[in-house]
Amino acid sequence: MTRGRLLSLQFLIAVITLLAWHLATTVPIGGVTLLPPFFFSNPVDVAARIFKWFAEGTIWKHLWVTLIEAMLAFVIGSVAGVLIGFWFAQQPRVAAVFDPYVKAINALPRVVLAPIFTLWFGLGIWSKVALGVTLVFFIVFFNVYQGVKEVSPTVLANARMLGMNDRQLMRHVYWPSALSWMFSSLHTSVGFAVVGAVVGEYLGSAAGLGYIIQQAEGVFDVAGVFAGMFVLAAFVIAIDWLVTLTENRLLVWRPVAAETRTQA
């Protein structure tokens, strides 16, 4: 499929969905509106709301807050995940001792932590950052741990035969291997950083995309809820696109990344 054809088909899906939504919410069939506008709003109202937010400029503040929270959660979660992942992989005994606790904490739905974080860190950005960190940390941690563990024994033996000491092994073998695993999960971890921020805002805050959606819901402003969701979706897609760009730069040595690069 050519790029133009693909794009037009993707566009077609959006048009059909919006059209169906619009007809179902505004044109009565046999005296009954299929989707009551009170519960489903309609595309025109939602578009008008999004336009109003950007025209008045009120949305920027919320986007900025969510972005900052997500970025802080990503950076703190990643750094902690890399450090502890490396430590555990190098110290199998430590890993074995902590194993059940790591699994237990990871199995916990993070939403239940949100109220505690709000108590500890207040209603500002830090309670949201904390929530995001608990999500990002485990993804990065598991990937780095795996990356260090799964270094090919032959590559490792080769590195030793080429005269590498422990420090050089770390720098030339373990570190690149762990990073490649971490970067391969970059989409997931960045996505979870945003989820942590938005869910945190939704459960109690004074700004951010989650806050807008929650406020609109509180007054049955369905157009506001949908508008918030669309802005959030666009926001996540934009971030995901940035991640793809970064990834293609950092993982040139990988077969898949290289193919994507030559296509671009």
Partner: peptide, 27 residues
């Protein structure tokens, strides 16, 4: 001794040049 392995032993994240140079750099 130098060891040429049966299976893939090059560092996949290094270019051919970097792979060859690394044994000198470590020294």
């Amino acid at each position: 001794s130098g060891y040429l392995f049966q299976s893939e032993a090059l560092f996949p994240w290094k270019t051919a040049l970097e792979n060859v140079a690394i044994g000198l750099e470590t020294a």
